[in-house]
Design a protein around this nucleic acid. Structure first.
Lengths: 161, 161
DNA sequence: TGTAAAATCACCCGAAAGTATGAGTATAAA
DNA sequence: TTTATACTCATACTTTCGGGTGATTTTACA
């Protein structure tokens, strides 16, 4: 199946062809701006071509056994929990250090549950603008740019469960 | 559609352009440091090396490793002591049940770190639109409306750490 | 060899999020 | 009583998200 082969490797072939075109282009440029060692240029071009092909061939050969078998162990766990499993301990120290206010933490918590600003506003009986102000301050204090980052960081710092 | 053509073949064109730059750079180097000619062997060797690497990179980029997943069920009784290990065990069952693809999970993971779609696109070397498509599908499959909810739910389902 | 799923990308549009700035109110501390 | 802080809200503007549509290209598979 030569056709199939061509189709299958059309990227590689395209690459090769473009390389060839480039070579001709460069040769042409060379003719226009004179000065150059043709033999050396072609030599280099040939080497580049050959070794590119070699690299491709090599990589393809090396990845031949590309059917990687991943053994995934599905563990059925029997957990003898010694309580304490999901107890959340708020990191008060960091909280104070960051200077997060009570309200800001509250907003942060709701944010972490995936609520939109609008929904948070409704839940806290304040306006959307107020929530925006809070979130802005939270981002500023946590030194992040987005709510997703804020949530991620807050969890990492044990500010929220 | 010349624009469309450019977009469609941007990979090939990129290769070509970078190759061209490299060639010109080499020529320039040669002109500036004639001493280099004395070490012709080294010069050629370097070129060979570079293009071999280029070929390998190209081939690897164009061939995806086929991963065959073999799920081996294993009943293990695990006892968690007080400081239980925080190893993450991906919930493959739920993953398959939801029909999340590999790429979608990948995007979800990056999303969970707080990256914007733009940043995820940059990291995965694809366009912003592609990421939008992925995120949309993720939201659909997870049955959520926002990325924050998606992350929250994914963590809850042990799809991500 | 045809088909189905996955991955890629474009374009549009409206909604949500985020930024910047200013300002009024309440409250607790100095 | 002044001062500082937290909380509230507004307006205006920019950016990002998310939905919807349609299309091409790979890849896998029957």
């Amino acid at each position: 199946m030569p056709l199939n082969f061509l189709i299958r490797n059309k990227h590689v072939i395209l690459y090769g062809v473009s390389l060839a075109i480039l070579m001709f282009l460069m040769r042409w440029l060379e003719l226009r701006f004179i000065i150059f060692n043709h033999a050396l240029e072609m030599y280099i071009g040939a080497i580049a071509l050959i070794f590119t092909a070699l690299g491709i061939w090599l990589a393809l050969k090396l990845t031949k056994p590309k059917v990687e078998i991943q053994v995934v162990e599905q563990i059925v766990e029997k957990v003898y929990s010694v309580e304490s499993s999901d107890e959340f301990k708020l990191n008060e120290a960091t909280l104070n250090e960051l200077g997060l206010s009570r309200r800001e933490l509250e907003v942060l918590e709701l944010m972490a549950t995936g609520l939109s600003n609008q929904e948070i506003a409704a839940q806290l009986f304040v306006s959307l603008n107020t929530i925006k102000t809070h979130t802005s301050k939270v981002f500023e204090k946590l030194d992040v740019k987005r709510r997703t980052q804020a949530v991620e960081k807050a969890k990492r710092l044990s500010l929220i469960p």
